[in-house]
Amino acid sequence: MKKIVSFFKSFLLLELLKGMSVTGRYFFAPHITVQYPDEKTPQGFRFRGLHAQRRYENGEERCIGCKLCEAVCPALAIHIEVAEREDGTRRTTRYDIDLMKCIFCGFCEESCPVDAIVETRIYEYHGEKRGDLYYTKPMLLAVGDKYEEQIAKDRAADAKYR
């Protein structure tokens, strides 16, 4: 009996109609798409985007070339060379981040003892040719100089959770 009922039910295409009623209802549902360039989703202060090197307020770069970030980087995206500067401080002569390798895990930021390498909120950057996404020290410093205000604000907001 049950079999006969289900046989006729399948001929009436009830299940198909049920499925179509679901999609039919969603046809009138409001769209949830964010129209990206016009609208943007909100960002948290811990957003991990493009890297930056920070400076102290007197203009001295923070990085002391301890290589902790290079050691901790799981993608081996950071390359550092260190030398002694004329004033006797230990400074990097080379600090490269290959953004094509970087997985934006944020470990470099966590490991840094002087908050020199940070990840900013910038995610809309691009490279037009091969090598454009290989960021060298001056480039990272430039990013840091440009967005220092935002970076400092984000660190301050995060500080109480650390």
Binding site: T23, Y26, F27, P30, H31, I32, T33, Q35
Partner: peptide, 13 residues
């Protein structure tokens, strides 16, 4: 457009 609407997105616009 219709596929988009049924998938709760606006389709090409």
């Amino acid at each position: 457009k219709i596929l988009g609407f049924m998938q709760v997105r606006p389709g090409p616009n």
